[in-house]
Design a protein around this nucleic acid. Sequence first.
DNA 1: CTCTGTGAAGTTGTTCACAGCC
DNA 2: GGCTGTGAACAACTTCACAGAG
Lengths: 236, 236
Amino acid sequence: MDAKDGETPGNGSSKRLKKAKVPKTTVGRLPYYLRVLYILQQSNIPLVSSEEVAKLIGSNSAQVRKDLSYIGEFGQRGVGYDVPNLIHELEHFLGITHLRHIVLVGVGRLGTALLNYPGFHERGFQLIAAFDNDPKKVGTKVAGVTVYHIDEMSDVLKRETIDIGVVTVPSDAAQFVVDELIRAGVRSILNFAPMPVSVPDGIPKRAMCIAAEMQILSYHLKGQRGRRKRPPALRR
Amino acid sequence: MDAKDGETPGNGSSKRLKKAKVPKTTVGRLPYYLRVLYILQQSNIPLVSSEEVAKLIGSNSAQVRKDLSYIGEFGQRGVGYDVPNLIHELEHFLGITHLRHIVLVGVGRLGTALLNYPGFHERGFQLIAAFDNDPKKVGTKVAGVTVYHIDEMSDVLKRETIDIGVVTVPSDAAQFVVDELIRAGVRSILNFAPMPVSVPDGIPKRAMCIAAEMQILSYHLKGQRGRRKRPPALRR
DNA sequence: CTCTGTGAAGTTGTTCACAGCC
DNA sequence: GGCTGTGAACAACTTCACAGAG
């Protein structure tokens, strides 16, 4: 149900690397490894062990080593991993070595919040434009990003390569907006609308649904009766 | 790395049901089934087949049937599933039959956007309170929800059972806020801060990280060179 | 002795294919 | 005929446990 694979169908052997297959579960964890590595780097910690990384993200050392081993051999036995080097390798693997261009459609509250989110820029994602169908919003700037009308999308994006289209419109507009983004040449979709959308084969897609996450939490709460009286001791 | 299991450790056989084990991947898909069922219900469609549900969420019919079969036998052979009944069963299974109480910590832009998100209420989640450490925000109301100071948390929540604490504070405050929520008796955590947090055993936890999702998309774009010239035909 | 990298074992999840009921 | 429910086959992922490098 999640992202389409995004792999070009018949590219068995690229010239880039040996590139054995990397499980998608592994790909999903790499951004989290990267996040703790950035923190370690800020603290000027030059080396880290798989055990330490595991502790920080709540996993286990074998998992960390296995995940990293799918990408290459970056550690030193008896020593650990060089933090800046590992950051470099992960960034390279994830394709975030150069600035990625993104656009956002739907300048409502969530859209505005995201436009103001500093994490985009910090992580190498550059907001090129925003789109909405509300004439009051069109022509304004939100967090420094110009808002265009949705009908202008193809024109505005004519000369730009957009890597990711972020969709923050109401459910009933989501599929239309996704279709427009694809038509305008946008290469992948991040959908926040609480509605499944379909994309053509080969277009990577991810969905973030807050309500779904909360329902999953709700499930885990079943069976635990009511308010905890004596909170469990905090670890750490 | 994701949510703690949330299962009370030694409760092999509850009296509630036969309750065979439901894979967590299945639990993760149920909210999406529910979402398309709500849509079908709004269109007054009384019956649906596993094939149709699968099409709508981009899965396959065997997966849908298998998932549903972990919970019970809700379909009729040769006919399909009764939409309202299946909704009822899924809601029951997910524990969203009664209102869930939630609080939010961090009334910044993202927090404000979430407080205004109508999906909470529509899906049976009731915002009881919000917290921030900014004196300018304390005492105001955002989207009808009163903002308290973080130090007041234990007091404010003394008599309430809070099911989910939503964390939308900056990274460096995330662990502190989570610890406070746990101390105040909050039963589970939904973390939006781009920082792993740890919780005691038995406290369900989920994380939503936008940057991570975008990095995963970025990975899938690697290898596809540049702007698509001729967009693939839209399906549907 | 420490910590990585990795086959092999073990576990979990998905797909197949068909019996069973409408 | 149509569609569910489900063992059994298959595939993916995780954990173990240890060889090998520093």
